[in-house]
Nucleic acid binder design. Sequence first.
DNA 1: CTTATATATCGTAAATATACGATATATGTT
DNA 2: AACATATATCGTATATTTACGATATATAAG
Lengths: 106, 106
Amino acid sequence: MMTELKEKLAENKTLSRVERERFIAMFKAMGNPIRYEMMEYMLKFPGCNTTNIVDHLPIAQATVSQHLKVLKESGLVSGELEGPATCYCLNDENVNWFKETVQKIF
Amino acid sequence: MMTELKEKLAENKTLSRVERERFIAMFKAMGNPIRYEMMEYMLKFPGCNTTNIVDHLPIAQATVSQHLKVLKESGLVSGELEGPATCYCLNDENVNWFKETVQKIF
DNA sequence: CTTATATATCGTAAATATACGATATATGTT
DNA sequence: AACATATATCGTATATTTACGATATATAAG
């Protein structure tokens, strides 16, 4: 019974309104060269902080922070406080959901 | 020898500058609700024309045409002349490249 | 060759995104 | 408590995107 349901869900190509919005927000978040670069950087250096990212990019700290907010809001990235700094990582669960959904939808 | 090379390429997580730009352009193209809807529509109705898409969406023909241009330029969509109309389809080759690249990169 | 149909492009207004400096907030240190 | 460090937010200028009506282009039909 449980397995059947799982299979049904796996085959279902439609997303709920909320899922769809999140899916589109993820595309939008990655559709910017700076944010794409940030994603790559976090993939390479999981747990890096804002300063690391700022040092790696040619843009101001305020702008980095703004882009991080977009990535966080899309769900692709998680930030957790570590003393006065914030450590950033890809949100594996959500990145995997994105990957699975890309395979499922198209 | 050939197999080895293929495996090496399959494992390689880096993209050329051009591939990377195309990858980002595809994210950007799909990161808009109207264009995402268009992609879904073309998936459901391959070979549909601009009029079909215009009738399906709440926006003007000129705007649809503009969005189609973005999708075409990203490579996700192909349009081919059929009389006075243009038939649109997902570009399977490029969509598959996108799907593979998503799996490879993240 | 005129007309009808389908699509693309142009010019432009309005909305949104991007980027920055200045400043606020929040944590750890002395 | 005062200070230093790390990050977020605010206000704002500029760039880009989105959307539209008007118009151009291109094909098929009469």
